[in-house]
Write a protein that binds this DNA or RNA. Structure first.
Lengths: 338, 338
DNA sequence: TTGTAAGCGTTATCAT
DNA sequence: ATGATAACGCTTACAA
């Protein structure tokens, strides 16, 4: 690969002049030289050495996307993360940046990578309050936090999430409007966004004079060897309900199959709802009644907010973006009024 | 962030000495200095500036993953790519490299990025013969090509793919063994790996004295506004068959729903098979009879082969890896013999 | 309009 | 065991 210095020597000009042409500062260079230099640039297919450029200019044009994992899982197996990543990549690239991807379990690792590479900005997913604060303290550049709670108001950090509580509230209200009274809520934990969804469920139950609360929180434990026991137990407990609000399409589908395999008909005998509206939500049978979120947009907005901070647009950048959701009614909830 | 030079000044030693300690070459440094330096290193939380390191050492520890896209799609919406990426990321990271991800439609773009960043290696997906050759000519470092045909034997390139033809052959034979005679093959094109699968189908049909061939190739065109017309047409044509071999679970599921929505029962009235065994293959109803491939392993092997080339292990590195597949029998094929 | 030269933070060669 | 010092390729004052 040809370098600036080599070109400068070839043409008997200075590296400054070549550099200026490369960066389109043609006003500072005589037309004749612009031409000569551009010709060589093209002829030798000049490519800048980005490492050198970064070192000299103290920036990197790298944006990191790091998603938190526990254990050895592959988070991108989940359609949600895959789609999110794709949207982020597109935005990052089209804005002239480069995307580095990490699945990490430890903030210290995150710190090491973003500092060493001198990354210009970071998009994170799944880290919680203390962890973000840790990062924010030692990494003084923009951070976008996706789908987290309790991380508001940190300096140079932006939160992006859904109206989780409202969405779950509306879903629950819809199910109640179909005549259901014994309704459970299911998730794999009760923190962060799952907790918000749980709160929405509780509120709707409360307002309808029905009993929600912790005793109707069903915990699902997928991915370990007790999964089958867990499903069996959930199956048994499900007889106490006519409907179950699940915090993801993934769990809704698992339930769907576990129940149907055991001979329980959905939605005739029990109704099930999902969350996210991922690709297969409309593919499973019965098709899932669910909450749609626009994952693509989430990724896009994330990067755009990041870039806005990067450019340091003098106008203040909002520090929180809450994306809308939409109730999608399909076939997995039975109308008991009919 | 503290630099080597600063540490050296603080301790009145040379940068060489500090550098040696950083790299664990403690034999070349007096025990006393090792201790003093390590203490400062820890105390000030030294992080190397990777750009500087890369510039000086003429490597980058970056591995690029680039998947070809046409148009503005998000390839990572497809579970296959998501899972592949996750596996690649894990391997890359655990080997001490860093992953940069691009979805590109143009090899020239690829060239620009990999050369500018001085990437140590590349994993590609979806580029075809001429494109790979173009890259290989100007990028003299290891390239791993996933799921491509007609790219064999290029220098410093490794191919990784499935026994596509054999898998389709076996699937077709299985369907035939269930008593089917009118069997179609469905894909969105007839090139590359889809073509290989088509060939496997043809061979099985041939051997059984049945008629396969182009006239029973069904072309599906998803993702554009003619999608519904296309599905309607496929529905009509399907009456000529008792079974359809699809080249992906994705298409099999689409068909499943298009047919069932129109009142055609699967598998009672028509059988459908998939390919890949992605997550929802067992979630849709009827659960898909399909060909399983180990995507996780594909990604893992890809990176491992790449690293092997990188290390320039003197033993010759194989230039082609063909991964096995497995026929998974579920409920989407009817046994006509019973 | 053009050129000189310092500096970015490392690595690595070669003396000492 | 330790230290000077050049080199990596580029950006950017500053000078001419």
């Amino acid at each position: 690969m040809i370098t600036i210095k080599e070109i400068a020597n070839m043409l008997n000009v200075s590296t400054t002049t070549v550099s200026n042409v490369i960066h389109g500062k043609t006003k500072e260079v005589s037309p004749a030289n612009v031409k000569r230099i551009q010709k060589v640039l093209k002829e030798y297919d000049y490519m800048p050495n980005i490492n050198a450029r970064n070192l000299a200019s103290n920036r990197s044009r790298i944006i990191g996307m790091v998603v938190k994992v526990s254990g050895k899982e592959n988070p991108f197996k989940d359609q949600f993360f895959g789609e999110l990543l794709g949207a982020v990549e597109e935005r990052v690239r089209s804005q002239g940046y480069n995307l580095m991807v990490y699945a990490l379990s430890d903030v210290q690792q995150v710190q090491k990578f973003i500092l060493s590479w001198n990354m210009d900005g970071l998009v994170t997913c799944g880290f919680v309050e203390g962890e973000i604060a840790y990062l924010q303290e030692r990494y003084k550049k923009p951070i976008v936090i996706i789908d987290d709670y309790d991380t508001d108001g940190l300096d140079h950090c932006i939160n992006i999430r859904l109206e989780d509580k409202k969405a779950a509230y509306e879903m629950t209200k819809y199910v109640i409007s179909c005549g259901h009274k014994e309704i459970a809520f299911l998730a794999d934990n009760n923190k962060n966004l799952d907790h918000q969804r749980f709160l929405g469920y509780c509120q709707a139950m409360d307002e309808a004079g029905l009993v929600g609360g912790k005793e109707n929180f069903l915990k699902i434990c997928p991915g370990n060897r007790r999964e089958q026991d867990n499903l069996e137990e959930l199956y048994k407990r499900s007889f106490a309900y006519t409907a179950i609000i699940c915090s993801s399409d993934y769990y809704a589908s698992m339930l769907l199959n576990a129940f149907q395999d055991r001979g329980r008909r959905v939605p005739d005998e029990i109704s099930i709802t999902g969350f996210d509206d991922v690709g297969y939500a409309s593919l499973v049978r019965p098709a899932l009644t669910t909450i749609r979120q626009d994952i693509q947009r989430k990724g896009k907005v994330a990067v755009e907010m990041l870039i806005k901070m990067l450019r340091g647009t003098t106008g203040e950048v909002e520090t929180l973006v809450v994306l809308p959701t939409q109730l999608i009614i399909r076939d997995s909830v039975r109308n008991l009024n009919e």
